[in-house]
Computed example of a mutant assay.
Amino acid sequence: MDEDPSVHHDAEMTESSNGKELVTNGGNLDMEPHVGMEFESEEAAKVFYDAYATRLGFVMRVDAFRRSMRDGKVVWRRLVCNKEGFRKCRPKRSENRKPRAITREGCKAMIVVKKEKSGKWIVTRCVMEHNHPLVVAPANSRRTVLLSQTPDDKDVKIRELTAELQRERKRSAAIQEQLDMVLKDMEEHSNQLSRNIDDIVQSVKEIESKRVVVSHH
């Protein structure tokens, strides 16, 4: 995986040095997802699974993610069917209120992609089966693939907070540096005063010694 795969200009899908299929941003979107499939980026994986979902008849949802402890970047992402999980039960506000349509049915279909050291994103888990009917929408009403490339609000907020935290850390480091310099200057000034006092005390002692000698004579 550390070596760059050989890419042919007339091919939509290439094969990496370890034999795993590699899908680029402009790769073959008609494939089916499977464990071991590789992508050039997280966005490429989203584009692929979104196109696959549209073709099969379900809607993709960008789900959970994990970040690197080193730099805070996303290194693990789960893409699911929008009917994954179950809707949380909430107290009824009004008996006359029209009940909301059931959109979560506990569907398990998903893929999990993980970023490797080489920078490629590889499918580490893949569930194909859906527990609900699939409805293929007409071509003219399909969602644009660009929709899947838009970061979700949580990611944006986390990036903003991370950037603000970094700014505060830099500001605190600058203040700490200034404080250290002030403390160092104070320490040096204190040491100088101590030396001056020692010199004065020594001079007084010498003068007193001379007076004693003179008085004896």
Score class of each variant (00 low, 15 high):
Pro91Gly: 09
Pro91Gln: 04
Arg93Gly: 09
Arg93His: 12
Arg93Glu: 08
Ser94Asn: 11
Ser94Met: 09
Ser94Phe: 11
Ser94Glu: 13
Ser94Leu: 12
Asn96Val: 13
Asn96Asp: 13
Asn96Glu: 14
Lys98Arg: 15
Arg100Leu: 12
Arg100Val: 07
Ile102Val: 14
Thr103Ala: 10
Thr103Leu: 08
Arg104Asp: 01
Arg104Cys: 03
Arg104Ile: 02
Arg104Tyr: 03
Glu105His: 09
Glu105Asn: 06
Glu105Met: 05
Gly106Leu: 03
Gly106Ile: 00
Lys108Ala: 06
Ala109Tyr: 02
Ala109Leu: 01
Ile111Arg: 04
Val113Ala: 03
Val113Gln: 07
Lys115Thr: 04
Glu116Phe: 00
Lys117Glu: 10
Lys117Trp: 01
Lys117Met: 04
Gly119Cys: 01
Gly119Asp: 02
Lys120Pro: 02
Ile122Lys: 01
Ile122Met: 11
Val123Cys: 06
Val123Leu: 02
Val123Trp: 03
Arg125Ile: 06
Arg125Asn: 15
Cys126Arg: 02
Val127Trp: 00
Met128Gly: 05
His130Ser: 08
Asn131Leu: 04
Asn131Thr: 02
Asn131Ala: 07
Asn131Trp: 07
Pro133Ala: 15
Pro133Leu: 04
Pro133Trp: 02
Pro133Arg: 07
Leu134Gln: 12
Leu134Asp: 07
Val135Gly: 07
Val136Ala: 14
Val136Glu: 11
Ala137Tyr: 11
Pro138Gln: 11
Ala139Asn: 01
Ser141Gly: 09
Arg142Lys: 13
Arg143Cys: 04
Thr144His: 12
Thr144Glu: 12
Thr144Ser: 15
Val145Arg: 03
Leu146Pro: 03
Leu146Thr: 14
Leu147Asp: 12
Ser148Met: 04
Gln149Leu: 08
Thr150Asp: 01
Thr150Val: 13
Asp152Ile: 02
Lys154Cys: 09
Lys154Gln: 12
Asp155Glu: 11
Asp155Met: 06
Val156Leu: 04
Val156Asn: 03
Lys157Cys: 02
Lys157Glu: 12
Ile158Met: 09
Ile158Thr: 06
Arg159Ser: 11
Glu160Gln: 04
Leu161Gly: 00
Leu161Gln: 13
Ala163Leu: 07
Ala163Phe: 01
Glu164Leu: 05
Leu165Glu: 14
Gln166Asn: 15
Gln166Cys: 08
Arg167Gln: 12
Arg167Trp: 04
Arg167Glu: 09
Arg169Leu: 05
Arg169Lys: 14
Arg169Met: 03
Arg169Pro: 02
Lys170Gln: 14
Ala173Thr: 07
Ile175His: 01
Ile175Trp: 07
Gln176Leu: 04
Gln176Ala: 10
Gln176Met: 05
Gln176Asn: 08
Gln176Phe: 00
Glu177His: 10
Gln178His: 05
Gln178Lys: 08
Asp180Lys: 12
Met181Ala: 07
Met181Phe: 10
Met181Asn: 09
Val182His: 09
Leu183Pro: 01
Leu183Glu: 13
Asp185Glu: 15
Asp185Arg: 11
Met186Phe: 14
His189Tyr: 15
Ser190Arg: 13
Asn191Val: 06
Leu193Val: 13
Leu193His: 05
Ser194Lys: 13
Arg195Gly: 15
Asn196Gln: 14
Asn196Ser: 15
Ile197Gly: 10
Ile197Cys: 14
Gln202Leu: 13
